[in-house]
Design a protein around this nucleic acid. Structure first.
Length: 273
DNA sequence: CACTCTCCCTGAAAGC
DNA sequence: TGCTTTCAGGGAGAGT
Protein backbone atom coordinates (compact mmCIF):
# COMPACT_ATOMS: atom_id res chain seq x y z
CA UNK A 1 0.00 0.00 0.00
CA UNK A 2 1.60 3.23 -1.05
CA UNK A 3 2.07 5.62 1.81
CA UNK A 4 4.01 8.84 1.52
CA UNK A 5 7.48 7.26 1.32
CA UNK A 6 6.34 5.01 -1.52
CA UNK A 7 4.79 7.93 -3.36
CA UNK A 8 7.99 9.91 -2.89
CA UNK A 9 9.95 6.98 -4.28
CA UNK A 10 7.72 6.78 -7.33
CA UNK A 11 8.09 10.53 -7.90
CA UNK A 12 11.88 10.34 -7.82
CA UNK A 13 11.78 7.39 -10.16
CA UNK A 14 9.64 9.29 -12.63
CA UNK A 15 11.86 12.33 -12.27
CA UNK A 16 14.87 10.24 -13.29
CA UNK A 17 13.18 8.62 -16.23
CA UNK A 18 10.56 10.71 -17.99
CA UNK A 19 11.52 14.40 -17.73
CA UNK A 20 11.83 15.95 -21.18
CA UNK A 21 10.02 13.13 -22.92
CA UNK A 22 7.26 13.77 -25.39
CA UNK A 23 3.97 11.91 -25.20
CA UNK A 24 3.29 9.97 -28.38
CA UNK A 25 0.11 8.11 -27.48
CA UNK A 26 -2.18 7.40 -24.55
CA UNK A 27 -4.36 4.41 -23.78
CA UNK A 28 -7.02 4.38 -21.07
CA UNK A 29 -9.20 1.49 -19.94
CA UNK A 30 -12.98 1.71 -19.98
CA UNK A 31 -13.17 1.16 -16.23
CA UNK A 32 -13.32 4.20 -14.01
CA UNK A 33 -10.98 4.83 -11.12
CA UNK A 34 -12.27 6.76 -8.10
CA UNK A 35 -13.28 9.35 -10.66
CA UNK A 36 -13.77 8.78 -14.38
CA UNK A 37 -10.92 9.88 -16.64
CA UNK A 38 -11.34 13.52 -17.72
CA UNK A 39 -12.93 14.09 -21.09
CA UNK A 40 -10.47 14.23 -23.98
CA UNK A 41 -7.73 12.93 -21.66
CA UNK A 42 -5.82 11.12 -24.37
CA UNK A 43 -5.99 13.85 -26.98
CA UNK A 44 -5.11 16.57 -24.43
CA UNK A 45 -1.95 14.70 -23.50
CA UNK A 46 -0.74 13.94 -26.99
CA UNK A 47 2.45 15.73 -28.06
CA UNK A 48 2.90 17.31 -24.62
CA UNK A 49 6.34 17.22 -22.99
CA UNK A 50 7.06 16.29 -19.36
CA UNK A 51 8.49 19.30 -17.51
CA UNK A 52 8.65 18.15 -13.88
CA UNK A 53 7.35 15.65 -11.33
CA UNK A 54 6.30 16.87 -7.89
CA UNK A 55 4.51 15.47 -4.89
CA UNK A 56 1.87 17.03 -2.63
CA UNK A 57 0.58 14.81 0.17
CA UNK A 58 0.10 11.47 -1.58
CA UNK A 59 -0.63 13.07 -4.91
CA UNK A 60 1.84 12.93 -7.77
CA UNK A 61 1.79 16.01 -9.98
CA UNK A 62 3.29 15.48 -13.42
CA UNK A 63 3.78 18.87 -15.01
CA UNK A 64 3.52 19.12 -18.78
CA UNK A 65 4.13 22.02 -21.10
CA UNK A 66 1.19 24.28 -22.02
CA UNK A 67 0.31 24.77 -18.32
CA UNK A 68 -1.16 21.31 -17.96
CA UNK A 69 -0.65 18.78 -15.13
CA UNK A 70 -1.53 15.15 -14.60
CA UNK A 71 -2.66 14.56 -11.03
CA UNK A 72 -2.22 10.98 -9.85
CA UNK A 73 -3.21 9.31 -6.60
CA UNK A 74 -2.21 5.67 -6.18
CA UNK A 75 -5.03 4.84 -3.78
CA UNK A 76 -4.44 1.51 -2.13
CA UNK A 77 -3.13 -0.66 -4.92
CA UNK A 78 -1.99 1.77 -7.62
CA UNK A 79 1.41 1.30 -9.25
CA UNK A 80 3.30 3.23 -11.87
CA UNK A 81 5.63 1.07 -13.90
CA UNK A 82 8.24 2.38 -16.29
CA UNK A 83 9.01 0.27 -19.34
CA UNK A 84 11.61 0.56 -22.04
CA UNK A 85 9.85 -1.70 -24.46
CA UNK A 86 6.45 -1.19 -26.08
CA UNK A 87 3.93 -2.65 -23.66
CA UNK A 88 0.58 -4.26 -24.27
CA UNK A 89 -2.12 -3.46 -21.73
CA UNK A 90 -2.72 -6.29 -19.28
CA UNK A 91 -5.16 -6.90 -16.45
CA UNK A 92 -5.80 -3.82 -14.26
CA UNK A 93 -3.74 -1.51 -16.45
CA UNK A 94 -5.86 1.61 -16.61
CA UNK A 95 -3.61 4.15 -18.23
CA UNK A 96 -0.67 3.68 -20.52
CA UNK A 97 1.39 6.62 -21.72
CA UNK A 98 3.88 6.00 -24.49
CA UNK A 99 6.67 8.43 -25.27
CA UNK A 100 8.23 9.24 -28.60
CA UNK A 101 11.44 7.39 -27.61
CA UNK A 102 9.41 4.15 -27.29
CA UNK A 103 9.54 4.06 -23.49
CA UNK A 104 6.30 4.23 -21.52
CA UNK A 105 4.66 4.42 -18.12
CA UNK A 106 1.75 2.25 -17.06
CA UNK A 107 -0.74 2.94 -14.29
CA UNK A 108 -1.95 -0.38 -12.85
CA UNK A 109 -4.54 -0.51 -10.06
CA UNK A 110 -6.55 -3.67 -9.26
CA UNK A 111 -8.85 -2.04 -6.73
CA UNK A 112 -9.23 1.26 -8.52
CA UNK A 113 -9.12 3.40 -5.39
CA UNK A 114 -6.67 5.59 -7.23
CA UNK A 115 -7.28 8.73 -9.19
CA UNK A 116 -6.02 10.36 -12.36
CA UNK A 117 -7.05 13.90 -13.27
CA UNK A 118 -5.93 16.72 -15.51
CA UNK A 119 -5.43 20.17 -13.98
CA UNK A 120 -4.32 23.52 -15.35
CA UNK A 121 -1.32 24.93 -13.49
CA UNK A 122 -3.29 27.97 -12.35
CA UNK A 123 -5.97 25.71 -10.83
CA UNK A 124 -3.78 23.27 -8.90
CA UNK A 125 -4.03 25.07 -5.58
CA UNK A 126 -7.80 25.18 -5.79
CA UNK A 127 -8.23 21.62 -6.96
CA UNK A 128 -10.92 19.88 -4.92
CA UNK A 129 -8.51 17.23 -3.72
CA UNK A 130 -5.68 19.59 -2.82
CA UNK A 131 -7.18 22.80 -1.46
CA UNK A 132 -7.90 21.67 2.11
CA UNK A 133 -4.71 19.73 2.74
CA UNK A 134 -2.67 20.38 5.87
CA UNK A 135 1.13 20.73 5.98
CA UNK A 136 3.60 18.15 4.77
CA UNK A 137 4.79 15.95 7.66
CA UNK A 138 8.45 16.60 6.89
CA UNK A 139 8.06 20.39 6.71
CA UNK A 140 9.01 22.87 9.44
CA UNK A 141 5.40 23.96 9.48
CA UNK A 142 4.50 20.62 11.03
CA UNK A 143 5.70 21.32 14.56
CA UNK A 144 4.44 20.89 18.12
CA UNK A 145 2.98 24.38 18.46
CA UNK A 146 1.06 23.99 15.25
CA UNK A 147 -0.19 20.57 16.20
CA UNK A 148 -1.25 21.72 19.63
CA UNK A 149 -3.31 24.51 18.09
CA UNK A 150 -5.06 22.03 15.80
CA UNK A 151 -5.73 19.46 18.52
CA UNK A 152 -6.76 21.57 21.49
CA UNK A 153 -10.24 20.73 22.76
CA UNK A 154 -10.45 17.73 20.46
CA UNK A 155 -12.13 14.74 22.06
CA UNK A 156 -11.33 12.53 19.08
CA UNK A 157 -8.61 9.95 19.70
CA UNK A 158 -5.08 10.95 18.70
CA UNK A 159 -4.69 8.19 16.14
CA UNK A 160 -7.73 9.19 14.12
CA UNK A 161 -6.82 12.87 14.40
CA UNK A 162 -3.34 12.30 12.98
CA UNK A 163 -4.83 10.59 9.95
CA UNK A 164 -6.95 13.65 9.16
CA UNK A 165 -5.43 15.28 6.09
CA UNK A 166 -6.48 18.73 7.20
CA UNK A 167 -4.18 18.36 10.22
CA UNK A 168 -1.22 16.72 8.51
CA UNK A 169 -0.97 14.87 5.21
CA UNK A 170 0.65 11.60 4.30
CA UNK A 171 0.64 9.87 7.68
CA UNK A 172 -1.08 6.60 6.91
CA UNK A 173 -2.29 3.81 9.12
CA UNK A 174 0.98 1.89 9.33
CA UNK A 175 3.17 4.87 10.12
CA UNK A 176 0.88 6.40 12.72
CA UNK A 177 0.64 3.08 14.54
CA UNK A 178 4.42 2.79 14.58
CA UNK A 179 4.93 6.44 15.52
CA UNK A 180 2.54 6.26 18.47
CA UNK A 181 4.33 3.16 19.71
CA UNK A 182 7.74 4.83 19.45
CA UNK A 183 6.31 7.79 21.36
CA UNK A 184 4.71 5.70 24.12
CA UNK A 185 1.32 7.24 23.38
CA UNK A 186 -1.86 5.17 23.38
CA UNK A 187 -3.92 5.47 20.20
CA UNK A 188 -6.98 5.79 22.44
CA UNK A 189 -5.81 8.98 24.09
CA UNK A 190 -7.96 12.05 23.45
CA UNK A 191 -6.10 14.26 20.98
CA UNK A 192 -6.65 17.40 23.04
CA UNK A 193 -5.28 15.85 26.22
CA UNK A 194 -1.68 15.49 25.06
CA UNK A 195 1.02 17.72 26.52
CA UNK A 196 3.21 19.84 24.27
CA UNK A 197 6.26 17.67 24.96
CA UNK A 198 4.33 14.55 24.00
CA UNK A 199 3.32 16.15 20.72
CA UNK A 200 6.93 17.18 20.15
CA UNK A 201 8.02 13.61 20.71
CA UNK A 202 5.32 12.26 18.41
CA UNK A 203 6.29 14.64 15.64
CA UNK A 204 9.96 13.71 15.95
CA UNK A 205 9.06 10.04 15.64
CA UNK A 206 6.73 10.55 12.67
CA UNK A 207 9.47 12.45 10.82
CA UNK A 208 12.09 9.91 11.77
CA UNK A 209 10.04 6.95 10.56
CA UNK A 210 9.00 8.62 7.32
CA UNK A 211 12.56 9.68 6.55
CA UNK A 212 13.87 6.20 7.20
CA UNK A 213 11.23 4.68 4.95
CA UNK A 214 12.05 7.14 2.18
CA UNK A 215 15.74 6.25 2.48
CA UNK A 216 14.94 2.56 2.21
CA UNK A 217 12.58 3.19 -0.68
CA UNK A 218 15.22 5.29 -2.36
CA UNK A 219 17.83 2.60 -2.16
CA UNK A 220 15.76 0.24 -4.27
CA UNK A 221 14.49 2.93 -6.60
CA UNK A 222 16.12 1.57 -9.72
CA UNK A 223 14.53 -1.82 -9.23
CA UNK A 224 11.22 -0.29 -8.38
CA UNK A 225 10.87 1.76 -11.49
CA UNK A 226 12.67 -0.21 -14.11
CA UNK A 227 12.20 -3.82 -13.43
CA UNK A 228 9.45 -5.24 -11.32
CA UNK A 229 7.03 -2.51 -10.43
CA UNK A 230 7.19 -3.45 -6.78
CA UNK A 231 9.47 -2.45 -3.99
CA UNK A 232 11.71 -5.50 -3.92
CA UNK A 233 14.08 -5.14 -1.00
CA UNK A 234 12.08 -2.52 0.85
CA UNK A 235 11.40 -4.06 4.22
CA UNK A 236 10.32 -2.16 7.27
CA UNK A 237 10.45 -3.97 10.55
CA UNK A 238 7.24 -3.08 12.27
CA UNK A 239 7.15 -2.93 16.05
CA UNK A 240 3.38 -3.15 16.36
CA UNK A 241 1.68 -3.13 12.96
CA UNK A 242 0.30 -6.57 12.13
CA UNK A 243 1.79 -8.07 15.30
CA UNK A 244 -1.44 -8.86 17.15
CA UNK A 245 -0.87 -11.28 20.03
CA UNK A 246 2.91 -11.13 19.76
CA UNK A 247 5.27 -9.87 22.43
CA UNK A 248 6.14 -6.20 22.59
CA UNK A 249 9.70 -5.57 21.45
CA UNK A 250 10.58 -3.50 24.54
CA UNK A 251 8.52 -4.94 27.41
CA UNK A 252 6.63 -8.17 28.15
CA UNK A 253 3.29 -6.73 27.03
CA UNK A 254 1.23 -8.34 24.28
CA UNK A 255 0.36 -6.32 21.16
CA UNK A 256 -3.33 -5.59 21.00
CA UNK A 257 -5.47 -4.86 17.93
CA UNK A 258 -8.52 -2.63 18.05
CA UNK A 259 -10.71 -0.79 15.55
CA UNK A 260 -10.85 2.98 15.51
CA UNK A 261 -13.10 4.60 12.94
CA UNK A 262 -13.08 1.49 10.83
CA UNK A 263 -9.28 1.24 10.81
CA UNK A 264 -7.07 -1.23 12.63
CA UNK A 265 -4.87 0.05 15.40
CA UNK A 266 -2.07 -1.94 16.97
CA UNK A 267 -0.46 -1.00 20.26
CA UNK A 268 1.18 -2.25 23.41
CA UNK A 269 -1.19 -1.57 26.31
CA UNK A 270 1.72 -1.82 28.73
CA UNK A 271 4.05 0.80 27.32
CA UNK A 272 1.64 3.14 25.52
CA UNK A 273 -0.41 5.42 27.77
C1' DC B 1 -19.45 22.41 13.99
C1' DA B 2 -17.49 17.99 15.59
C1' DC B 3 -17.34 13.67 14.81
C1' DT B 4 -18.59 8.85 12.91
C1' DC B 5 -20.00 5.88 9.35
C1' DT B 6 -20.32 4.24 4.56
C1' DC B 7 -18.84 3.43 0.23
C1' DC B 8 -15.77 2.56 -3.59
C1' DC B 9 -12.97 -2.07 -5.18
C1' DT B 10 -10.27 -6.74 -5.71
C1' DG B 11 -7.42 -10.25 -3.94
C1' DA B 12 -5.36 -12.58 -0.11
C1' DA B 13 -6.30 -14.93 3.89
C1' DA B 14 -9.14 -16.87 7.20
C1' DG B 15 -13.21 -19.50 8.37
C1' DC B 16 -16.26 -23.30 7.60
C1' DT C 1 -10.27 -29.33 -0.89
C1' DG C 2 -13.36 -25.71 -2.21
C1' DC C 3 -16.63 -22.49 -1.21
C1' DT C 4 -17.91 -18.29 1.55
C1' DT C 5 -16.76 -14.55 4.47
C1' DT C 6 -13.74 -11.18 6.23
C1' DC C 7 -10.31 -7.89 5.91
C1' DA C 8 -7.18 -4.53 4.01
C1' DG C 9 -7.34 0.85 3.72
C1' DG C 10 -7.35 6.42 1.44
C1' DG C 11 -10.40 9.73 1.22
C1' DA C 12 -14.86 12.08 0.08
C1' DG C 13 -19.34 12.64 1.24
C1' DA C 14 -23.37 11.48 3.87
C1' DG C 15 -25.26 10.92 8.27
C1' DT C 16 -25.77 11.78 13.37
Amino acid sequence: MPELPEVETVCRGLENNIIGKKIASVFISDKKLRLPFPKNFSTDLKNKTIISVKRRARYIIIELDKELNILVHLGMTGKIIYQTKTPTPSLHDHCLISFSDKTSIIYNDPRRFGLIDLVKTSEIKNHKMLKNLGPEPLSKEFNAKYLQSKLENKQMNIKTAMMDNEIVVGVGNIYINESLFQSGISPLKAAGSLELNQLENLIINIKKILKKAIELGGSTLRDYVNLHGDVGGFQFNFAVYGRTGQKCIVCDGIIKKIKQNGRSSFYCPKCQH
